[in-house]
Write a protein that binds this DNA or RNA. Structure first.
Lengths: 149, 149
DNA sequence: ATAAACCTTGGAGTTTAATCCAAGGTCAAG
DNA sequence: CTTGACCTTGGATTAAACTCCAAGGTTTAT
């Protein structure tokens, strides 16, 4: 059993964050001492770890709430519901990855287009691309001609 | 010359957003009419497009402010500065993609572990995994044994 | 000349995810 | 038995990036 500060320290979050999660229904301590101190079990700690892992990867707290809320009411849900939720999240994650890959490609094109040297950015390909249109970034040859004059 | 609503409509943002950008030093109209209406020139419109394009690539407004300050003063900066910013952003995006891939793998494991049938989620492998530890999700065989009793 | 559509300002509200604060209660050590 | 570290609560504040509102002024079309 951990007090709030212990669990927080263990998981590298602040005690305030745990109170916040409690207020928002993500994680409540399994018990309280007579004097009202929150006491977290190992199971609570595991739940917190799941929350943190999900968060690390870009799930919002309300998405995490949704995912965890089934657990409180297991018997009212069918496996299909649970799996459906996971699959929805999976689709969202894949969508997000796809989106980020688009960003990545654009950024790579921008990066490749620029010599990155100490010369003035007067004719910098990156700035020129942002000035005109991102779709026009084309300068993939290794010998960068940029800054020639 | 465009009035605020025209420029907003043209670029598919709200007039409020343009006022917001002005307040935050990203984009001020080049002039005002006698009666105080904002009037944007084609150059202003280009600057807005620059902002929107940069946003598309995932730059925050404060990063864009920085980019714009380079833009306005190109000769005082080196290509290395500009490329450095893009490469930083690229690293951030790649890091995020890597994280999302970890979560994707976990979600795929959860999904595979569950039969997805109409039976009660009382003994659902997904929920069991969430309750204990995600690292324990191991049930990749096609014949799902889940819900057996 | 009047209604509709547009514009102005300052300021408040929204969302997400905390983070901080004040005033006070609890607990272990010396 | 008092100090210091910890805990309690409710409420205020933060940051980002808008978004909306009220009360009024301007333009334009009929």
């Amino acid at each position: 059993m951990y007090r709030i500060g212990e669990l927080a320290g263990m998981c590298e979050v602040k005690a305030d964050t745990l109170r916040f999660y409690e207020k928002h229904g993500l994680l409540a301590p399994s018990m309280r001492t007579d004097s009202g101190y929150r006491m977290y079990t190992e199971q609570d700690a595991n739940r917190l770890r799941f929350i943190l892992r999900a968060k690390e990867v870009g799930f919002t707290l309300s998405e995490i709430t949704e995912l965890l809320s089934i657990e409180l009411n297991k018997s009212e849900w069918a496996c299909a519901d649970v799996k459906g939720m996971v699959d929805d999240k999976l689709a969202q994650v894949e969508e997000r990855i796809a989106q980020l890959n688009v960003f990545k490609t654009t950024l790579q094109a921008l990066s490749r287009a620029c010599c990155g040297g100490p010369e003035s950015a007067e004719h910098c390909s990156i700035l020129e691309a942002l000035e005109s249109s991102l779709t026009e970034v084309r300068c993939e040859e290794p010998g960068c001609e940029h800054g020639k004059q």
